[in-house]
Amino acid sequence: MGNVLVVAEHQHGKFPKTTLVAFEAGKQLAKLAGGKCIAAVLGQGVDALAAAAAEYGVDVVAVDGAPFAHYLADAHTAALAELVKQKGVDTVIATATALGKDLTPRLAARLGAGMASDITGIVDASTFKRLMWAGNVIATVKLESTPRVVSVRGTAFDAAKKEGKGAVEKASVAPGANDTRMQFVEFAETKSDRPVLTEASIVCSGGRGLKNGENFTIYLDPLCDVLGAAMGASRAAVDAGFVPNDLQVGQTGKVVAPQLYIAVGISGAIQHLAGMKDSKVIVAINKDEEAPIFQISDYGLVADLFKAVPELTEEIKKLKHA
């Protein structure tokens, strides 16, 4: 008992940083609860991944098979619920990625478990912090059931470090017919050579001020390139079709907390701030000196972005070559 089960989400045969954050949270929680931290690796052909997970000092249970070849909420829920029973698990943790957000509530319902989504802190084994009202309120919530389910915000903890070696075992769980009714059809991946938005140490985001998608290419791309930055966007820019959906930063998009966040032509609506205000350094470039983004930015530049951004790109280039 007191065991913690971490959902080890993987992409392209690797664990993204967000998964390592769940490992870290899981290890901290297992320590508090006096139990073990067990990573659940689900997929098809996951031997190498299971071995890789064990290097973070967690025990690993691998569930291998065709129903898990693509993540689908029903089959994953069935398998994880089974593992919760088999392993004496008190708390299940996943990162609040798209997958984690899709999966954890379904699992909580199956277990009849109390759930806290997108937690930003652990107070004790059953008490967590999470944000509500677009980041305007921090709630401390206690889950009064066992088991419990939480999803953890990808920026709230450091990534787990490699240490020790956990035991790896295989579990055979086969979801029944009612748990294999969802079907994967296709994944249209946004192709990009840039760092992943939720992992990058620098993020440059564009808003409606850029006026169209072409300007993202002309103005923001070179700035991202010279900084090795990931690109983000406001909802307005995404809604207008300037950039793909998964670049949206904010309350209802991705949450980022890089070393440096540069907001270009973004007004700073509360819903946008909810996704970036924990960045270490925030720069805002906006032609309206009254724009709310300036209230929270460390360095504000009141300027026309179409002039300032190319200049900025050049200056940084000069600096890098100096």
């Binding site: 992409q11 689908l72 990625t97 798209a98 997958l99 899709d102 969802m182 079907q183 994967f184 059809v185 296709e186 994944f187 249209a188 991946e189 946004t190 992943v196 939720t198 793909p244 959906n245 998964d246 991705k254």
Partner: peptide
Amino acid sequence: EVDGGLETDA
């Protein structure tokens, strides 16, 4: 709308 792109499920 998922991370990294658009997924279609049936």
